[in-house]
Amino acid sequence: MCDKSRDDALTLNQQEFSFICRYVHEHAGIVLSESKREMVYRRFSRIIRERRLSSFSDYCRLLQKNPEQEQNYFINAITTNLTSFFREQHHFDYLRQHELPALIRNGSHEKYMRIWSSACSTGEEPYSIAITLMQAMQGLLSQWDVKILATDIDSNVLAKAKQGIYAKDKLDDLSSEIKRQYFKQGTRENSGKVRVAQCLSKLITFKQLNLLHQWPMKGLFDVIFCRNVIIYFDKDTQQDLFARYYDYLKPGGLLILGHSENLGSFQSDFDNVGRTIFRKPVISAQAQVV
């Protein structure tokens, strides 16, 4: 009762809201508009209660005083993690029907494939990619060096993704064949839950990564998923990220965006091969001119 009374008494003034917006933008690149004020109030009221603070000003001072201690917790609270298995199904259909068969044909000697899920949230996206790989490659997978890198800024969702345990109703839209082959049903105290099959888990490496910071990966990727995250950044940050994604793609590699996202001025640097599916040209326009 005391905690609820304290929440009811909290107010978020314009100065506090502006500070939080600046802090989010500086540390995560996310742009918060006035329409997000209620979300900020709701999520940070919980933090204030857990920290036993009395006001938003107290929390703003805590962020200034102990940024390293609070930053990870702050980012986890503000990031949005709405996802599902095979969200935007057409992306996975394109992989299975077109891209993966072409990579298998063209890589028959090298047998090396890398895919990056760059905002993997609670793991549904990379596990959907892994299922698609299993379906497309079937008996060939053991002959290839195939890895999926799954990254996210939020350490909490990464922990859930690594665990690979989901509520059973998360699979409601999946076929009975996919459920049977790639998920194990929980029993007793785990009734109502499922765990992803080990054949999927062993394909994926989960790592925490802030897209605004240095990217430690040294190799290039055949496919990069960057879905439903670009929309949270300002235009300059978006263009910087597209330039970096371009550099991390193999010639001919795919960049896959969310349904409401576009490449902006980078549209001319990629070929559009499907709904929000873009291919880095094998030979750049500059190279052709030379």
Results as ranks from 00 to 15, higher is better:
residue 246 Y to F: 11
residue 215 W to E: 03
residue 273 V to Y: 06
residue 207 K to L: 07
residue 238 Q to Y: 01
residue 283 I to T: 14
residue 230 I to H: 00
residue 194 V to Q: 07
residue 225 F to K: 02
residue 229 V to L: 06
residue 252 G to H: 09
residue 238 Q to D: 01
residue 207 K to Q: 11
residue 217 M to G: 01
residue 232 Y to F: 06
residue 197 A to K: 10
residue 262 N to T: 15
residue 248 Y to H: 12
residue 282 V to N: 10
residue 183 F to V: 09
residue 186 G to H: 11
residue 184 K to G: 08
residue 241 L to G: 02
residue 283 I to F: 09
residue 210 N to V: 12
residue 195 R to Y: 12
residue 264 G to R: 07
residue 201 S to Y: 04
residue 228 N to S: 08
residue 226 C to S: 03
residue 192 G to L: 05
residue 216 P to Q: 10
residue 194 V to Y: 07
residue 194 V to C: 06
residue 191 S to F: 15
residue 270 F to C: 02
residue 246 Y to G: 02
residue 255 L to A: 04
residue 228 N to C: 06
residue 236 D to K: 12
residue 246 Y to Q: 03
residue 213 H to K: 13
residue 202 K to I: 14
residue 220 L to S: 12
residue 234 D to R: 06
residue 227 R to L: 05
residue 210 N to T: 11
residue 183 F to T: 08
residue 187 T to D: 13
residue 192 G to D: 08
residue 233 F to Y: 04
residue 225 F to E: 02
residue 260 S to D: 11
residue 268 S to Y: 09
residue 247 D to F: 00
residue 218 K to N: 10
residue 221 F to W: 05
residue 252 G to S: 10
residue 245 Y to E: 01
residue 201 S to W: 03
residue 271 D to P: 00
residue 239 Q to E: 10
residue 219 G to F: 14
residue 198 Q to L: 13
residue 258 G to C: 09
residue 217 M to S: 06
residue 248 Y to F: 11
residue 265 S to A: 13
residue 247 D to M: 04
residue 251 P to M: 04
residue 251 P to C: 06
residue 199 C to R: 13
residue 281 P to W: 03
residue 236 D to T: 15
residue 222 D to I: 04
residue 189 E to Y: 13
residue 240 D to E: 14
residue 265 S to V: 14
residue 282 V to T: 14
residue 231 I to F: 02
residue 198 Q to C: 09
residue 249 L to C: 04
residue 215 W to D: 01
residue 203 L to P: 03
residue 186 G to L: 11
residue 274 G to S: 10
residue 189 E to I: 14
residue 270 F to N: 03
residue 259 H to K: 11
residue 203 L to K: 03
residue 265 S to M: 11
residue 230 I to E: 00
residue 253 G to E: 04
residue 204 I to P: 00
residue 246 Y to P: 00
residue 214 Q to C: 06
residue 223 V to K: 02
residue 229 V to F: 03
residue 191 S to V: 15
residue 208 Q to T: 12
residue 223 V to N: 02
residue 204 I to V: 13
residue 199 C to Q: 15
residue 200 L to C: 10
residue 182 Y to G: 02
residue 201 S to C: 09
residue 249 L to M: 03
residue 245 Y to H: 03
residue 274 G to N: 08
residue 195 R to D: 10
residue 264 G to W: 02
residue 257 L to Y: 03
residue 198 Q to N: 15
residue 258 G to M: 04
residue 190 N to H: 13
residue 250 K to T: 14
residue 280 K to F: 04
residue 214 Q to N: 12
residue 246 Y to K: 06
residue 239 Q to I: 08
residue 253 G to L: 05
residue 196 V to M: 08
residue 240 D to H: 11
residue 215 W to I: 12
residue 254 L to V: 09
residue 218 K to W: 07
residue 260 S to G: 11
residue 266 F to Q: 09
residue 208 Q to K: 12
residue 184 K to D: 14
residue 205 T to G: 05
residue 183 F to L: 08
residue 209 L to M: 07
residue 210 N to D: 10
residue 244 R to P: 00
residue 235 K to R: 14
residue 275 R to E: 15
residue 194 V to N: 05
residue 215 W to M: 07
residue 195 R to N: 11
residue 261 E to N: 01
residue 201 S to M: 10
